[in-house]
């Protein structure tokens, strides 16, 4: 596991008699874009919460950015970024205020924070929006800004939970270009999505069914193995095997 940024070995989470995540094992490398797919209720959110240091595993081992998720959850939180469709930014703060808040939370101060903010706004083409309240931005811009904020402190890995839901098709693709750029800089990207075309953009994809990882490979290899034209077909074949009720 020389360069693995996410490492799971037999990772399991039970709630009473219910096994939400059932012995999952895999590694994700530095700079890799890893798609984490599964039907509603397959256990994705529970697994993601463990990787983010928000939920302690019942058994098994997990390491993220070099820290043990069970014994060093605070270190894990400091070295990851997180973005979801539901919570992204503070709507009643201005763009620059959001940057200062999130930068500050991760210990960035003064000139370094200012320089980094300027760089980021320039890269996004958002310089004119510095004083704009986030609530006044179009959804697509908010999502792009939220992603940039999630990687503002240069985390080793960023977790994206359905980042593109409801976003228009053009912005959705621009969002993926931001993901590619982050990955090229060495940030590992761990992403869930319900858009199966987006599964194709990942370096590797895992598909979870009933708490277990039923398949894990490059999109191309998965399509070949399942004799499928698209990742949607692969997903349909696997997810139909589920026996437990959705979410």
């Amino acid at each position: 596991m020389k360069d693995s940024v996410i490492y799971a070995d037999g990772l399991t989470k039970r709630f009473g008699l219910f096994t939400a995540v059932d012995h999952i094992s895999f590694e994700v490398e530095r700079g890799e874009i890893f798609g984490f797919l599964g039907a509603n209720g397959a256990g994705k959110t529970t697994a993601m919460r463990m990787f983010c240091g928000l939920s302690i595993p019942t058994s098994g081992t997990g390491r993220v950015a070099g820290y043990d998720i069970a014994s060093q959850p605070e270190e894990v939180k400091r070295h990851i970024g997180y973005m979801s469709q539901k919570f992204s930014l503070y709507e009643d703060l201005k763009v620059w205020e959001n940057l200062r808040l999130f930068g500050g939370i991760y210990g960035m101060r003064g000139r370094k924070l200012a320089r980094k903010s300027n760089e980021m706004l320039r890269d996004l083409g958002f310089e004119a929006e510095r004083e704009t309240f986030v609530r006044a931005l179009p959804l697509g811009w908010k999502q792009k800004l939220a992603f940039s904020v999630a990687i503002f402190h240069e985390p080793k890995v960023v977790f994206l939970d359905e980042p593109t839901g409801g976003v228009d098709p053009v912005t959705r693709r621009q969002f993926w270009e931001l993901i590619y750029r982050a990955a090229d800089r060495g940030i590992t990207v761990f992403v869930t999505t319900h858009y199966m075309d987006e599964a194709e953009y990942c370096d590797r994809v895992s598909i979870m069914v009933d708490g277990r990882i039923e398949a894990l490979d490059t999109p191309r290899n998965l399509r070949t193995r399942f004799g499928a034209e698209t990742m949607d077909e692969v997903f349909q074949q696997l997810a139909r095997r589920a026996t437990r009720q959705s979410d």
């Binding site: 509603n40 409801g166 319900h194 997810a239």
Partner: peptide, 8 residues
Amino acid sequence: TGVDPVSR
């Protein structure tokens, strides 16, 4: 919205 491909 937010529903997985099989349930959709």
